[in-house]
Simulated scan of single mutants.
Amino acid sequence: MSSFEVAVIGLGAMGSAALFHLARRGVKAIGIEQFTPGHDRGSSHGESRAIRLGYFEHPSYVPLVRSAYENWREVEQLTGETVLTTTGIVEAGRPGSQLVAGSLEACLLHGLEHELLSPAEVRRRFPAIELPDDYSAMFQPQGGFVRADLANSLHLRLARQAGATILTNTKVAAVEPQREGVRIATGDGTIEAGRVVVSAGPWITELVPDLMRYITLNRMVLTWYEPKRPELFGLDRLPVFAIEDEDDLVYGFPDFAGTGLKCASHYSSGRLPRADAARQDAGPTDEARTRRFLERHLPEGAGRLKAMKTCIYTMTPDEDFVIDLLPSDPRIVVASPCSGHGFKFASVIGEILADLSTGGATRHDISRFRVSRFDGSGAGGSGQPALGARGEGG
């Protein structure tokens, strides 16, 4: 039986970052992953994830994403790799679009750099994008993308270099609180830890049944196309984009790796009964959805389909995160779900999870993400309001 100060279960975006932050502090930590890191069964795989400062979901996310930018840059300094690429981001939508209105509110509240653009100005600056004349649009120059697979592998490399133990292809069967710590049962034996971080993504309810009634699993599909005019879709001509139209909200990325124009709907293509039910089963109906969008808004991008992949959004009813000490046992830290918009925050969430699992609190305001919000108690939680915070978190 092995013994550790902290065990991290699940080494996707959040778990790999948490393990790095624990190890760099000299904590005796172990990370446990049921598959091989970089697998395509969950929510952390892929070449890219969008990042943006003005946050349409809620302005209170802005301080966290600012810290995430800082932490991603630190990973780059430590490794010499490029993790975060700034392209800017265009957000656009029909009149009354919450995407544009919410991002604008966050930018105004936090003094973030942004530009309001007419559809004609969008077409002039980014000729790949076609918008109806009555749409509104905003450009955030600091938007861009994080290289997802690379970021996860770098966090694990840094964690290992700092002394962390990493177990892969090891499934956790149970997390069992004991008087002196927490026992982790695996197929290969048991591990004892003083505290445990459960960052198991869509598998979290198998280990923390308390969360089961609050979580749904959404099947999502990503597509890659070969543009008809490739010169319009490189890093120098096309920013990251998100467009809310009549019946969908679709986002996408320039072709920066030779894999094609990537785009996907932010809306679900079906529910999954459990994480292990997910399959790489994208088909013609999934392609038709993104192709229809491209033909309307990026017509020169709607060329030959190059690839499709599925992933999972692990969702809460309010679409906010869950990051908290488990109310029934504060030695267990939960870090999921992230409701389909969490990856960009992984670098700072890893820091927060290290804080919670070693000291029980964090300097970052995570009051919005408490487990107790679901039952209406509003009690507990573990964040401390950031300086200058207002309302639910600044």
Rank of each mutant, 00 (worst) to 15 (best):
A185D: 10
E115R: 13
Q161P: 00
R124F: 09
Y135Q: 03
F145Q: 07
A137T: 09
A159H: 06
S136K: 03
P119I: 11
A162S: 15
F145W: 12
M138A: 14
N169W: 01
H155Y: 15
P177C: 12
T165C: 07
D149H: 11
H114F: 12
I166M: 11
A173Y: 06
E115L: 10
G181Q: 02
E121T: 06
R183E: 13
P127Y: 04
L150K: 15
M138V: 14
E180L: 12
T190V: 15
R179G: 06
V172K: 02
G189K: 02
T168F: 00
R147N: 13
A148H: 03
I191Q: 09
S118F: 00
I184W: 09
V182K: 08
H155R: 02
A162D: 01
R157M: 12
I184H: 08
D134F: 01
R160K: 14
A120S: 13
E130C: 11
Y135I: 03
A148D: 10
R179M: 06
V122N: 04
E113C: 00
S153V: 02
R147G: 09
G189N: 00
H114I: 02
L158G: 07
A174P: 07
L150F: 08
F139Y: 15
A174S: 13
G144Q: 11
A137H: 11
I184P: 04
G111L: 05
L112S: 10
G144I: 05
A162K: 05
G144W: 09
D133R: 12
R157Y: 11
V175E: 06
I191M: 09
G181T: 05
L167C: 05
T165N: 03
S153N: 12
R125C: 06
N169G: 06
R147D: 11
Y135K: 01
V172H: 07
E115T: 01
V172E: 08
P127F: 06
A120C: 00
V182T: 10
F145M: 05
P177V: 08
E115W: 02
Q140P: 00
A151G: 14
K171M: 10
E121V: 08
M138S: 13
T168A: 07
L158C: 10
Q161A: 15
P127D: 02
V175M: 10
Y135N: 08
A137K: 03
L131H: 02
L131G: 09
